[in-house]
Amino acid sequence: MAESWISPPTRQPLIEDLVSGVDRYNPSNVGILEDYLYHQIRSQEYDCLANLAILKLYQFNPELYNPDVVINILIKALTTSPLPDFNLSISLLDERSINSSLEEPDPVPALLPTLKRLNDLLYKCRFPAFWELYQSAELEHLRDNYTVECVGFEDSVREVAIRAVKATFTRISAERLASYLDLNGTDLAAFVQKKGWKMEAGVIEIPPNPDNQIEATVVQENIKLSQITKLIAHGASN
């Protein structure tokens, strides 16, 4: 995992102590981490390990469990595909036992299959299908109650698509890109321009990057001196 994933530059020392120290197990710190999550949601920051620390506290202290926080963590993790953040979060969601049927019904069990489907579509690079599902009437509840709060959620999803496109294409038709990004006409043109890409006759050129440059290579063996010292020594001694 990249350095910025293990320790995002935006992470404050207080959070760093919680993430890396034994204090992460202290239930009274859950508020600090939850506040930090809501800060991430408002300011388009992301800190996977801090969010997993919240889920860890929930795992050990079922009474702390806050379904809205869980859903927000999952929404944040959706947009990191193909990194495994979404799966890592699900891994920590233990089965919740019966007595925890709170006064209000827990929205997580109802939303979880939907979130998993969205995640699946992103991981499968089925971007047009993602947008179709995301904008369906069925998901109105999710949009109106959760993703609307998560600043830049749709743009973060677009970034997932952009990462896949950048790695795979050298040129892509505007129509195809539009379906991946759910952007049309002037919006798409503005987006492409913001990226600094060139659009000509309905085709967008993706600048070269390490993943969209291909070259047939033959990996040749490299002989190091240390491998043949024995031979040379033998030759010299005769």
């Binding site: 050298t170 070259e215 047939a216 290579t217």
Partner: peptide
């Protein structure tokens, strides 16, 4: 490895050359 240029897929394969030197070193 491959890349898509609009609607054309270009493919390149990396192959590992025969390891002659290693073979010769070992047998020598």
């Amino acid at each position: 490895n491959f890349v898509i240029d609009e609607n054309m897929v270009h493919i390149a394969e990396s192959t590992v050359g025969r390891r002659y030197a290693g073979w010769f070193i070992k047998n020598t």
